[in-house]
């Protein structure tokens, strides 16, 4: 089981969703900025790392069953995206890290928990 606190600290996340929003379990991760690619390849329970912050992100995340969105590069999701995410009960964060750094730090956490296929925990 992945500890959200650990992810929040390691990825330097700022939440943009209501404090009382329950955070779903994280089972993996996907990193991508092209919506059609994320629709095709991300999986239910993934944390999604992206530079995109358009409200379409919320629609794609909801369709896939993403457990949370991490908007990178210090970009802050605009109000309409945040409002839509709240309505859909989708956790949404921002981080000053870029895609590579955020994915790298998350990879380490997921690998430790045995959630990266082919990589043993430890």
């Amino acid at each position: 089981m992945i500890d959200w606190q650990e992810i929040v600290a390691a990825l330097e996340l700022t939440p943009h969703h209501p404090k009382d929003l329950p955070l779903p379990p994280v089972r993996g991760a996907y990193c991508g900025d092209m919506m059609s690619d994320v629709l095709a390849h991300a999986r239910r329970g993934d944390l999604w790392i992206t530079i995109q912050r358009h409200r379409n992100v919320v629609a794609v995340a909801t369709l896939v069953g993403i457990s949370g969105v991490v908007v990178t590069g210090g970009r802050v999701p605009p109000e309409d995206t945040v409002a839509l995410a709240e309505k859909e009960k989708l956790p949404i964060f921002s981080t000053p890290l870029d895609n590579f750094q955020a994915a790298g730090r998350l990879y380490r956490i997921l690998a430790k928990a045995g959630l990266v296929p082919g990589i043993q925990g430890g």
């Binding site: 059609s36 379409n56 909801t62 839509l84």
Partner: peptide
């Protein structure tokens, strides 16, 4: 609106929203 579609059984309709995003 990405959460609008006229097709039954679907929750989202991304055709025009994604095109608008690409254009913007």
């Amino acid at each position: 609106d990405p959460f609008f579609t006229t097709k039954s059984g679907k929750k989202v309709g991304l055709g025009l929203p994604l095109l608008q995003m690409a254009v913007q």
